[in-house]
Design a protein around this nucleic acid. Structure first.
Lengths: 364, 364
DNA sequence: TTGAAAGCGCTAACAA
DNA sequence: TTGTTAGCGCTTTCAA
């Protein structure tokens, strides 16, 4: 706009405000200078008053705020950012938005940032197709944000290096990432929790639906859940058949496919329980079972991980986690760090077994 | 940082770069001045070269970019924004993130903005609890964005006024809003489409599940769908009983509740079809029907609106729309306007009937 | 408690 | 094709 304004006619070297004269309240470019003039104070004092610094007289603050309001003053984040070097904004980088976990976590990050007076700049890598690299670079290569929250991302070598160079406080939600702080549940423990529940019920033939989320989820999460499952089963004395690992791509449709593959076999070949690495996949497996004429949990028990609303309504046994809370924790951590606090250790996020109606003792 | 740097020791009035000396490549504050010095060019030329302006010699551009890279130059969006008055960012305001429609639309907006080189600043009003008002105040926008995309929002008087004052190019997705451009489907037509399908099948006793999304969805959407439904049914000669309007709160759980209320009655009192204003509610109604021992579509037909993935897997008849595309259209429109183009008319978004397995002729 | 003045890093007239 | 120069709107020393 400055440029626009300037080229709009006369070229008064300075004090060239707005298109319209500095007349009424509803003008676009009311700055602290205008407020200073109107109040007879200096820009410096107005600036301080607006921020409520303690060195300003209470009466002055009130007066300045009143006038600012009257004039329709809108602070310029760019100017403040340039002067202070802090943008009061945090970047959130995620692989895709339309997945339960990401959407919930993003909501949590947002809530916390809003409370802290920070803006949230979204960098969606847009799935495997999106030119994620460019998006990632832009995130930090423009100094638009003071910190970064990464949602379940696998970083490649280059990305990691750029992150380091940027020196931005960073944290990742969901799945540990090399050298970066991390908030999330203990995925191996989550898997062990489910296995324990199932073996306690008497299950010995348990299959697993996991797989890689092609959307760019942190590889560590699926691996850890799967390994945790395998380990726990082995420890319980019921090693898992190689054929009983199916890929559900972390989606509902993928769950249906995986469930069908696993369950559409002769009864003796069929697992008595299916452990899924997410609720959406578990829901898919339940649907697959029903389509095959099986009764859940009489014929097969099914479990998920997440705490998805649908699962609640449908009675899915699961290990519930709270991605919103994880988002809030992550946001709080990076904001604190951006404000100069030393990095603190973030505790492991809670996850708890919620037994509902898709698990029961095996009938075989 | 400037402040931080300054207080870090000596107070050299000017040219006080970085903490470390202006030594190696990986320093945080390399500006165009450094590049200018290194190349022997002026700041102005460096600036132009970096932006690839046509008035710069090709060789110069290459050289500047090379040196910039070498020095680890990171542009400052704040400085550029301050100088130009354009932030290269668009704000997206939405009531909640974790709803199918919003997540999808947000993804579309994001994709388009990324392609245009704009950043996306998210303003989540955080549901009915969130202090939505604050989020909307122009003070909060802080001139951080050049345009606004509103997702299905109802604006109150104050909000509308502040929007006007801000003079930002604005567009709303989903549901018309007073005085603002709008992208979305024709909700009355959508309802009529479903009714047509059902009456063609022979249905005369049709109930409706709609309701107000407490999350702050544009009121117009539910109203228009409901009115479109009522009108179409009346026109078809099958006026709807007053008791056959249920509130599903635009959620899956709400759909289950509404479906139960509607279907748990004596067979003769039961509608032969249930039209739902969203797929999630429709899925809930299907579940409710199954729980009551009814067969879909033999005992009841059920329809939704949206084109949700789950509905696809489960064979839900619906009117599919593409919120991602709507998001892209909206983003493109506001970006163009932010760049000075005159506002154009946005055409109504397409919606098409997708007949699957939850609708059939009535057996009664 | 306030004011004066010097920038923050970049862009854009204007001149060369 | 490039350089000079004057800001963009705010914050922050330093001095009063």
């Amino acid at each position: 706009m400055p440029a626009g304004r300037r080229s709009a006619g006369v070229s008064a070297p300075r004090t060239c405000r707005a298109g319209r004269g500095a007349d009424g309240p509803p003008g676009s470019s009311v700055g602290i200078q205008e407020i200073a003039t109107a109040t007879g104070l200096s820009k410096a004092t107005v600036s301080r008053a607006l921020r409520g610094l303690p060195t300003v007289a209470g009466a002055t603050i009130d007066e300045v705020r009143r006038v600012a309001d009257e004039l329709g003053y809108v602070p310029s984040s760019a100017a403040a950012g340039l002067a202070t070097g802090r943008q009061r904004a945090v970047g959130v980088v995620l692989p895709v938005i339309d997945r339960w976990f990401y959407a919930k976590a993003l909501g949590g990050v947002d809530a916390e940032l809003r409370a802290a007076g920070y803006d949230l700049v979204l960098y969606n890598l847009g799935g495997p197709g999106g030119d994620r690299h460019r998006a990632f670079r832009r995130a930090m290569l423009r100094q638009r944000v003071d910190a970064l929250v990464l949602l379940s991302l696998v970083l490649d070598e280059t990305e990691r290096r750029e992150l380091q160079v940027s020196e931005l406080p960073t944290i990742v939600i969901g799945g540990p990432a090399h050298d970066l702080r991390n908030v999330g549940v203990d995925d191996r423990a989550v898997a062990a929790l489910v296995v324990r529940h199932l073996t306690d019920l008497g299950h010995r033939h348990v299959a697993y639906v996991g797989g890689q989320d092609e959307a760019g989820m942190n590889v560590a999460v699926p691996y850890q859940r799967r390994d945790g499952f395998t380990e726990a089963m082995t420890r319980a004395g019921h090693p898992v058949r190689t054929g009983w690992y199916a890929d559900g791509r972390f989606s509902f449709a993928g769950g249906v496919a995986a469930g069908t593959a696993l369950l559409d076999v002769r009864p003796v070949e069929r697992p008595t329980a299916v452990v899924c690495a997410s609720d959406e996949m578990a829901l898919g497996v339940v649907v697959a079972a029903q389509r095959l004429g099986l009764v859940v949990p009489a014929d097969v028990s099914v479990t998920g991980v997440d705490g998805h609303e649908y699962g609640e309504v449908l009675g899915l046994t699961t290990v519930a986690q709270d991605p919103g809370a994880q988002g809030r924790v992550a946001a709080r951590a990076v904001v604190a760090e951006a404000q100069g606090a030393p990095p603190t250790v973030v505790p492991v996020s809670p996850a708890r077994l919620v037994v509902r109606r898709t698990t029961a003792p095996p009938t075989r």
